[in-house]
Design a binder for these strands. Structure first.
Length: 351
DNA sequence: AGCATCTCCTGCGATAGAGT
DNA sequence: ACTCTATCGCAGGAGATGCT
């Protein structure tokens, strides 16, 4: 029996499974101040509803040969606020991974810890809201051929596999939640396909604002500037507003940001029908600086999009070999590698 | 914890201004 | 005068927030 903090973590070793599948059956989230992390696939696609009304529409997005289809349960699509639960779990698990601790798909946490970490009001309804959020996360099903981690698959799954709440009434109000993450999310964590997001993200109260930040964080990253057309941004946001309405909402957010400078990491501006995100230079450096020594974890995700169907580790080896042969020392290894994958895919198509 | 109030996305319609 | 487009206003509804 080992401990995480002062809490024991039960490890059930299954002798029938090889070592790499040996996982503790429960991970207890008690890492104080874990940096917020979000999975990249979820930031790329509008998986979460930005509406406060229950959203019952099925969405489908296609990008080349990849598609993702998101269908709500009768409770409606999971919202960007529900996502805070996933962000909280991912942050905890990544922090544990960085500490070389073992992690598991099933995590448990105290509602009060979650509320503090995500800056939610500690009112009495918080427990009920968390329960509703878990229900929507559980009910929202995703069908996709986009893979996370090394898994390549067509699959249907919920955003979380299962969830249960545990009330401990001995000292009154201690309430605990146990969540089993879906493979989709767990693979992303293990492959470290996650991005550090600003703590100020939780201060963003408008759903659209949150979605804008995610998109900027994913696409602009540490670059000084990133531009996107309003219509394309609308699609990426998953907004149901008309184009004109969407422009108004974006204008409002930008005006707010100009006035209060509350938008984290980027300074958004509207130039005609183009939204420009300029970096404030505050984007956190990845905790895992270069995955397996050299490449930024973001590179693997982008490389998979650039060369769908190909084994990225194999491509990485090819790329390194080619750089060695040509005596190339890329100034920007990440960009160079993605470019390499792009031209690989253009020349050879799908494997 | 419970309740009241606030906030905000959406859908719809009204209004204003520019172009034909 | 008519059409088109951009902007503004408002109500509905549900979640977020704040107060006690």
């Amino acid at each position: 029996m080992t401990t995480v903090g002062d809490k024991p973590v039960k490890r059930l070793a299954n002798p029938l499974l090889p070592d790499r599948f040996q996982q503790p059956d429960l991970f207890i989230c008690d890492i104080f101040d874990a940096a917020p992390k979000s999975d990249m696939a979820g930031m790329e696609h509008p998986v979460f509803s930005i509406s406060k009304k229950p959203d019952h529409q099925t969405r489908r997005y296609e990008n080349g040969n990849n598609y993702i289809e998101i269908s709500p349960s009768t409770k409606g699509l999971a919202t960007v606020f529900d996502r805070d639960i996933l962000i909280f779990c991912i942050s905890q698990l990544i922090a544990a991974l960085n500490d070389k601790k073992e992690i598991s798909k099933t995590v448990s946490f105290k509602v009060s810890d979650y509320i503090v970490a995500t800056g939610k009001p500690a009112g009495g309804s918080a427990y009920g809201r968390a329960e509703d959020a878990l229900e929507r996360l559980r009910g929202t099903s995703i069908k996709t051929n986009i893979h996370t981690g090394e898994e390549r698959q067509w699959q249907v799954f919920g955003l979380v596999e299962s969830a249960k709440t545990i009330r401990r009434d001995n000292d009154g109000v201690l309430q605990e939640v146990q969540v089993t993450l879906s493979d989709w999310v767990f693979n992303a964590i293990q492959a470290k396909e996650v991005l550090t997001i600003s703590r100020d993200y939780f201060r963003l109260k408008k759903p659209l604002e949150r979605r804008m930040y995610e998109i900027a964080r994913k696409h602009c990253g540490k670059s000084s500037e990133w531009r996107i057309g309003l219509e394309k941004l609308r699609l990426k946001c998953g907004s149901h507003s008309s184009a004109k309405e969407f422009k108004r909402l974006i204008s409002n957010i930008i005006a707010d940001s100009d006035q209060h400078d509350h938008f984290p990491d980027y300074d958004p501006a509207l130039e005609g029908n183009i939204v420009v995100f300029r970096s404030k230079g505050t984007v956190p450096m990845p905790v895992v600086e270069m995955y397996e020594g050299r490449l930024d974890p973001e590179a693997y995700h982008d490389a998979r999009t650039a060369a769908p169907g190909w084994d990225i580790r194999m491509l990485e080896q090819e790329w390194r070999a080619w750089c060695g042969k040509e005596e190339i020392e890329p100034k920007h290894p990440t960009r160079h590698f993605i470019k390499f994958c792009q031209s690989w895919f253009e020349k050879r198509g799908r494997p």
